[in-house]
Amino acid sequence: MGGVGDRPPAGGPPPGPAGAPQAGWLTTRLDPLLAWARRWSLFQYPFVTACCAMEFMSTMCAHFDMSRFGAEIPRWSPRQSDVLWVVGTIVHKQAPALRRVYEQMCEPKWVVAFGTCAAVGGFYDNYSVVQGIDKILPCDVYIPGCPPRPEAVIEGLMLLQEKVGRGELSRWQQQQPGAGRKAG
């Protein structure tokens, strides 16, 4: 699956503009170019429900400054977003709303579970809490912590960027009919 365990294929990173020859021609491989562009301009939709939001704000703001990674702008419409950050506890009452937000996002799209509650339900092993958002959405990166430190969040973002840079589809897209194509 496309979680944090994914490693780049052997032989180093895929060829991209950074590795392109210095001569006066353009690469003919569009996919790596698109993947490179996507990797460094992730628009995010924060679906923020709980105390993890404090660390999300901390990561976004000046001290840790997520814009260094090209992931600067939160989009307040899922239709304009690439990454769905699920930040905090998701209860069953809310699950349809989260599912709808995900479905409204345009492809390609990725999902990050921010914090232990979003990843596995946290210690809320009870009647009301979804035991991890991967029970309702395909999830690409899990960031553990209660809440995670900003360094962990940045690590999660970098793992996601590696994945996006490889041109991988999210798990949901891999499962769709005719998913042999690369993203784009």
Binding site: M1, G3, V4, G5, R7, H92, K93, A95, P96, R99, A113, A119, V120, D125, N126, Y127, S128, V130, Q131, G132, D134, K135, I136, L137, P138, Y142, P144, Q175
Partner: peptide, 22 residues
């Protein structure tokens, strides 16, 4: 204690827990 009443279908292919951090 374990009884949950989800409003959206739970996905079958979801891993029981996230993979260990590599």
């Amino acid at each position: 204690k374990e009884k949950r009443q989800p409003l959206v279908p739970m996905r079958d292919d979801a891993p029981p827990q996230p993979p260990p951090f590599p």
